[in-house]
Simulated scan of single mutants.
Amino acid sequence: MKLYYSPGACSLSPHIVLHEAGLAYEGILTPTKTHKTPDGTDFYTINPLGYVPFLVLDDGRTLHEGPAIVQYLADLVPDKHLAPAHGTFERYKLQEWLTFIGTELHKNFSPLFNPATPEEVKTATKTQLLSRLGWVNGELAGKDYLMGNTFTVADAYLFTVSNWARLVGVDLAGLDTLLAYRARVAARPAVVAAMQAEGLRH
């Protein structure tokens, strides 16, 4: 498998999952600013949408949406319990979390990275994000991870997206349960390995 990624982008989520799963893969650095692979190839010729993550299977099939990619990877190694079994209520709770993180958190961070976004929009966006993150903080009470005591692919996604808060001035102070959760996830060997692979920590 090949994972096209950009350091610290949402592709960190499947990067973490690959390490958690112990699956063999080739990571291909594809910075979002240049859209070029290390050999100079225009990434748009590989993925016409131009964004990461992008997963290419050994048989040439591809996946290009993070929540789909991480579930696919989890299902390759069911013994790792990175996703509940298909058809169970818990699987739908996982999908609920992946959808929430994607639509309520991930997409709300996007305007904050855009220099063209007016300041009043950024202010309103930060308020909305903190409201949603405050709710997550409450949902994590008494739990090690989003789904309880077991780390799942949803945790890889939430950790990745919540990393962006400090980059765009979203202050998580006061969200103590979320901060403790982030520290717990950050200490996982697979998370350390994925972040080292992306040059995010030494």
Rank of each mutant, 00 (worst) to 15 (best):
M1A: 12
M1D: 10
K2F: 06
L3W: 06
Y4V: 05
G8M: 01
G8A: 03
I16E: 02
V17K: 01
V17C: 04
L18A: 07
H19R: 12
G22N: 07
L23D: 11
L23T: 09
L29M: 05
T30V: 08
P31I: 03
H35T: 02
T37V: 04
T37R: 02
T37I: 02
T41K: 14
D42F: 00
F43R: 00
Y44R: 10
T45D: 10
I46P: 00
P48L: 03
G50K: 04
V52D: 00
D58L: 11
G60M: 13
R61V: 02
P67D: 09
L73V: 05
L73T: 03
D75S: 11
V77C: 06
P84Q: 05
G87T: 09
Y92K: 01
E96C: 01
L98M: 10
I101V: 09
T103K: 05
F109K: 00
S110G: 02
F113W: 11
N114I: 09
N114T: 08
P115F: 12
A116T: 13
T117S: 12
E120H: 13
T127G: 12
L130K: 15
L130D: 13
L130M: 15
L133P: 06
W135Y: 15
L140T: 05
K143C: 07
D144H: 14
L146C: 13
G148S: 14
T152I: 09
V153M: 14
L158E: 07
F159R: 02
V168Y: 03
D171A: 12
L172Q: 06
G174T: 07
L179Y: 00
Y181R: 07
R184S: 07
A186P: 05
A187N: 11
A194N: 08
M195H: 05
A197M: 10
E198K: 06
L200G: 03
